[in-house]
């Protein structure tokens, strides 16, 4: 055995793979330069930005806390009502659609696809766009906001609920079917106990998101704190804007804390 056996040759990527990776990087670089040229940065405005920001902060200070009981408090409560009612509306719509989308429960693929279509269309439209739509239908106010939040959340809640259903252990379901249980009982005792923690988790998480979203949709007239913010911005009441932003921040933090606490208790 005097001859040396050829030493092993090893490369992480083949030539083709290297070229493919290079092409992807090149594509990113081209896309980046194209977007920068489209944005059309005006240098004067960019240099001016720090001064403007400092000016804004100065105008925001001191905060007009006296305005909170006059104009903010009620709008804030309205925001919370919009978020909560909207989430409930979403749940009512999402449970049947979620069940229809779960292919281990509904063994009829056209229905699965229909459900997925509903869920995707709910998610593909931004909540501001939903808000504009419903403001056009119901007129400005909290009703438009609530329905907007509901329709926007169906896709989220329904998709996650359907996924939780699809991940359930089929064993208990088989056992209840073998006992001759009707469909609703099988769902109730076979599927539901398995998905209940996930379901309440999704519900709380979506409520948490909706508190934040409903603060924004008021900007287009869908009620709540956003409408107050819009007015203050338009009238250049910067000392009020800062109080509104601070109260939104406080409410979001409180919602977060509450949701975390409840999740710990139920799961």
């Amino acid at each position: 055995m005097s001859e040396i056996i050829a030493t092993h040759k090893w490369e992480r990527f083949t030539f083709r793979e290297r070229m493919a990776r290079f092409a992807v990087f090149l594509g990113f670089a081209i896309a980046l330069s194209l977007s920068i040229s489209t944005v059309e940065v005006i240098p004067e405005f960019l240099y001016d930005a720090p001064t403007q920001a400092a000016d804004l902060l100065v105008r925001m200070w001191p905060m007009d806390f006296a305005y909170y009981p006059q104009g903010i408090h009620e709008a804030m409560l309205e925001t919370l009502h919009i978020a909560s009612l909207g989430t409930l509306l979403a749940i009512v719509m999402a449970v049947p659609v979620g069940i229809m989308a779960a292919n281990n429960i509904v063994h009829f693929s056209p229905l699965n696809w229909l459900a997925k279509l509903i869920l995707v269309s709910s998610r593909s439209v931004n909540s501001l766009v939903w808000a504009l739509l419903f403001v056009a239908i119901f007129g400005p106010g909290p009703l438009a906001g609530t329905v907007c939040i509901g329709f926007r959340s169906v896709g989220f809640v329904g998709k996650l609920f359907a996924e939780a259903l699809e991940e359930t252990n089929p064993g208990p379901v088989e056992a209840l079917t073998a006992a001759g249980a009707p469909w609703f009982s099988v769902f109730l005792k076979g599927y539901w106990p398995q998905v209940a923690p996930a379901f309440w988790g999704i519900f709380l998480f979506r409520w948490d998101i909706n508190v934040r979203e409903s603060a924004v949709i008021g900007l287009v007239g869908a009620g709540g704190i956003g409408m107050v913010l819009d007015t203050a911005l338009n009238l250049f009441y910067w000392d009020r804007v800062s109080v509104i932003l601070l109260s939104i921040f406080a409410v979001v933090i409180l919602a977060e804390l509450l949701v975390t606490y409840i999740r710990k208790r139920i799961i």
Partner: peptide
């Protein structure tokens, strides 16, 4: 037709009592 399974197939998050009562769901 009563059936007993290899992996027991109990509803894990329900109580023992409720699992036994599940036999009456039919």
């Amino acid at each position: 037709i009563g059936m007993v399974f290899q992996e027991f197939n109990l509803v894990e998050r329900l109580s023992v009592m409720e699992n036994v009562l599940c036999g009456r769901l039919g």
